[in-house]
């Protein structure tokens, strides 16, 4: 009985052939929809932080280092959902097909994008330069208001309003 079963298997396996893929020597099956590691184009990125807000595991996050703002991408926490690529207003994030990301050093799984910050007259660094330039270009607002930090802008607005409505100059 056992011998009969064995003979049957030989027949079917001969018909089927080899199913094992020769992975290291053969390209794996990757479709065009496959989502791998994301790639941020530093030329297009303005540092608005929309990707860091949408990222479910916070694999993309903002770190303030003195006068610089760093968008840090930690591949080890990324779930490859590509929501950052969908949300990016500048279309700076693209999804690559890279999946061979294994490493023995956790530090090599980080990627940093460094942004310069705009300095207010009071000396406080508050927003990325490229983002402020982008806003100025799109909204056509006077640049001297947009290069003020939020607190200074509030004071400036009160000053202007009081001058216009009450005629009081500070």
């Amino acid at each position: 009985m056992i011998r009969v079963k064995f003979v049957k298997i030989v027949g079917t396996s001969l018909k089927k052939g080899t199913v094992t893929i020769k992975y290291p020597y053969e390209k794996p099956l990757i479709t065009s929809e496959f989502r791998g590691k994301i790639e941020v184009d530093p030329a297009k990125c303005t540092g608005c932080g929309a990707c860091t807000r949408i990222c479910p595991p916070k694999a993309l996050y903002l770190v303030k280092e003195g006068d610089n703002l760093v968008i840090r991408y930690f591949i080890g926490r990324c779930i490859f959902c590509a929501m950052c690529a969908d949300i990016c207003p500048q279309k700076a994030i693209s999804v690559s097909h890279e999946f061979e990301l294994a490493t023995d050093d956790i530090a090599s799984l980080y990627e940093d994008i460094e942004h310069d910050l705009v300095k207010c007259a009071c000396g406080k660094a508050f927003a990325p330069k490229k983002l402020v330039n982008e806003v100025i270009e799109k909204t056509k607002l006077p640049p001297h208001l947009l290069t003020l930090c939020p607190e200074c802008r509030r004071v400036e607005t009160v000053k202007r309003l009081s001058f216009r409505l009450l005629g009081v100059k500070w």
């Binding site: 530093p42 294994a102 490493t103 090599s108 799984l109 990627e111 940093d112 994008i113 460094e114 990325p128």
Partner: peptide, 11 residues
């Protein structure tokens, strides 16, 4: 050898 490397770029 692992492919990924730490990268820091200026925007």
């Amino acid at each position: 050898k692992p492919k990924v490397k730490y990268r820091r770029v200026k925007a």
